[in-house]
Design a protein around this nucleic acid. Sequence first.
DNA 1: TAACTGTGTTATGTCGACAATGTAGGGGCT
DNA 2: AGCCCCTACATTGTCGACATAACACAGTTA
Lengths: 226, 226
Amino acid sequence: MSLPVEVAKTSAEKTFYSLRKDIVEGRIPSGAKLSEAELASRYAVSRAVIREAISRLMSCHLVERKANVGAKVVTLSSAGLIELYQVREALEGMAARLAARHMNETEVDELQQLLSQHSAQVKHGQSYYQEAGDVDFHYRIVQGSKNQHLINVLIDGMYHLVRMYRVQLGMAGPRVTTAFDEHNQIALAIANRDEELAEMLMRRHILYSRNNIKNKLLTPSHFPTN
Amino acid sequence: MSLPVEVAKTSAEKTFYSLRKDIVEGRIPSGAKLSEAELASRYAVSRAVIREAISRLMSCHLVERKANVGAKVVTLSSAGLIELYQVREALEGMAARLAARHMNETEVDELQQLLSQHSAQVKHGQSYYQEAGDVDFHYRIVQGSKNQHLINVLIDGMYHLVRMYRVQLGMAGPRVTTAFDEHNQIALAIANRDEELAEMLMRRHILYSRNNIKNKLLTPSHFPTN
DNA sequence: TAACTGTGTTATGTCGACAATGTAGGGGCT
DNA sequence: AGCCCCTACATTGTCGACATAACACAGTTA
């Protein structure tokens, strides 16, 4: 019913999750250098563990590394965020289409349960849960596509980047109310096994998000966007 | 004019390229276990280097790894290849659309030059170059999209997997003649800045490939497809 | 004064050894 | 005989130390 919790078996995995959290949530700022020695002492592990963790961060495209120079958190730009949403539009559009084809009845039911439960929460004014709820919704649809390559690219590689952009460019929790209706319509299209409509609505949903972001970027509220 | 040659600065990078080549071209078969000690002695480097190389192979989804157990080359299935082509269709379709929008005149010219030069080669019966030529064509269009996320996913993460599938499932050098015409039409659409047409033709082009592969899979020529 | 070179420092890249975990095989118990 | 547990081995995970490359700064020279 809920998102599978990633459980770390090795010390490198734990460090990776910690680092990823610190980066995505902005405690390690965009563009910052990741010194292996410093991180090793901070997390109380050896440099080998840190290097392993940094390797995995590179897989997610959260950090970049130059040989013999070091690793830095990726530099964000508003253009980069727009590009990211373009790719999301194509990929999640396909995910919605495939979800309409491949989700079983149980999964469809759970998706709709999630939405109604979510709707109740928001009516009580807990827009706090919106971020997690939004992630959960999209997550389920991607999983529902049953396409492993799609799942890999989006879940492992892209969602963390999106969250990082949103946190660091200061656009947390936008578009709560309208996004709900869009989610509901998408879920309905999937329940009706209407592949075309599901894809179209999902693409439009993400396009709206992109436009919303564009507008926010035009009126920079606190800091430059590189 | 040609593909940028990846030059290895560190020992780990060299080992990574070697390993990737061995895996993609089938010398290390699908499903094989990658023993760190064995590879370390074979490539005459330390285990740390091997671990670094394996990390990068995991980034490309060419190998999988379980904690405290080890790394194995990914297991291929015909279903997985089909899924891969579904994702390619969405991504490269978008790449073609963006290429039509963002490629400059020089890049468009070079793309068309490549095709005519390529066409001449094939008329001389050198269908040998088809594989490389095909890769080159798609590569340029992806680069022409100027979308860094798209470039990352496709170039670093997906094309090697596609090559691996094609080699190991025994479908090298297919559809030479018809693919040419399709390439030409796509290049023409891009030259005319017809985004819609470019995307449609590219999607169709990849769909044809997928169908072609499906047919080959129905008549398994030499070995089971898992 | 400006540019270049040499050196010293600091970081990353690489290595071999030790620790911890998973696995297979043999022995004992029911 | 079949199942379980325990031991021994093999493999991966982690560590600290050394090798090597990049950077900064001072000294020299035109």
